Amino acid sequence: MAITAKMVKELREKTGAGMMDCKKALQETDGDIEKAIDYLREKGIAKAAKKANRIAAEGSTAIAVDGNTAVLFEVNCETDFVTKNDQFKQLLNELGEHLVKQKPADVEEALQQKLHGDGDTVETFINGAIAKIGEKISLRRFQIFEKSDQDAFGAYLHMGGRIGVLTVLEGTNDEELGKDIAMHIAASNPRYVSRDDVKEEEVNHEREILKQQALNEGKPEKIVEKMVEGRLNKFFEEICLLEQSFVKDPDQKVKKYVESKGASVKAFARYEVGEGMEKREENFAEEVMNQMKK
Rank of each mutant, 00 (worst) to 15 (best):
T124R: 09
E94V: 15
A155S: 11
L157Y: 01
E229K: 12
D149C: 04
N93F: 00
E200W: 00
G117Q: 10
E275H: 09
F145H: 06
D32N: 14
T4I: 01
N85P: 03
I45D: 01
C240T: 05
L210M: 08
E259M: 06
F246L: 10
Q244A: 09
G171C: 06
E281C: 05
A62P: 00
N216L: 08
I130P: 03
V122R: 12
G274K: 14
I55P: 01
S148I: 04
E34V: 02
T172G: 12
Y39D: 05
F246K: 11
A267N: 15
I37H: 02
K248T: 08
V224C: 04
R191V: 08
E281F: 11
V258R: 09
L242H: 04
D149H: 07
T61E: 07
N76E: 14
I181E: 02
M1C: 03
A36E: 03
R207V: 02
H158Y: 12
M289W: 00
F153A: 00
D180F: 00
P250Y: 09
D30N: 15
A70M: 09
N53C: 00
M292H: 05
D151L: 06
T15S: 01
L169I: 05
I37K: 08
K256T: 11
K234P: 10
K211M: 08
M292V: 10
H205A: 12
L40R: 11
D197R: 07
P190N: 05
D180E: 14
F284A: 15
V100Q: 13
K279E: 10
E123L: 13
D38C: 09
M183H: 00
E28C: 01
L11P: 03
R54M: 01
S264A: 14
K294A: 11
I239P: 06
M20P: 01
N76V: 13
G164K: 05
N189H: 03
E201R: 12
E286R: 14
R231H: 03
G117P: 12
K219Q: 02
I185L: 06
L11Q: 07
E58C: 10
A25G: 06
H116T: 11
V273N: 10
H98G: 13
C77A: 15
G274V: 14
G16E: 03
N216P: 06
M1G: 09
H184D: 07
I63F: 01
V82Q: 08
V224R: 02
